[in-house]
């Protein structure tokens, strides 16, 4: 089973990288882009013997304890195959 974990800054945190990318897009003429936030994607491959519930349980734990810093970031995930 393969899952993707998405880690992004919380909405309350200023993301200077995202802001810089947005400015660049603007200068290239992409005026319709209202906001850019830069985050991270982790692709995790799990043992086939695990159930979807087991995989989700593990992801929730490592998403919180390892892959994100809850002080500044939030995470989301999807099981892709």
């Amino acid at each position: 089973m393969i899952a993707r974990v998405y880690v992004n800054f919380k909405k309350t945190i200023l993301d200077p990288q995202g802001r810089t990318i947005k400015k660049t897009l603007e200068s290239l003429g992409y005026k319709d882009v209202l906001d850019v936030r830069q985050g991270k994607v982790f692709t995790l491959k799990f043992k086939d013997s695990l159930s979807r519930e087991q995989v989700e349980e593990i992801i929730k734990k490592i998403g919180r304890d390892v892959l994100s810093n809850p002080v500044i970031e939030e995470f989301d995930y999807e099981v892709v195959e």
């Binding site: 800054f9 945190i13 200077p16 990288q17 810089t20 810093n69 002080v71 500044i72």
Partner: peptide
């Protein structure tokens, strides 16, 4: 120390990058 939760908070990229 922050990542270890021995101190509170986080350090993010400098404002001017």
């Amino acid at each position: 120390l922050l990542e270890s939760s021995l101190l509170p908070g986080a350090l993010i990229k400098n404002k001017n990058l």
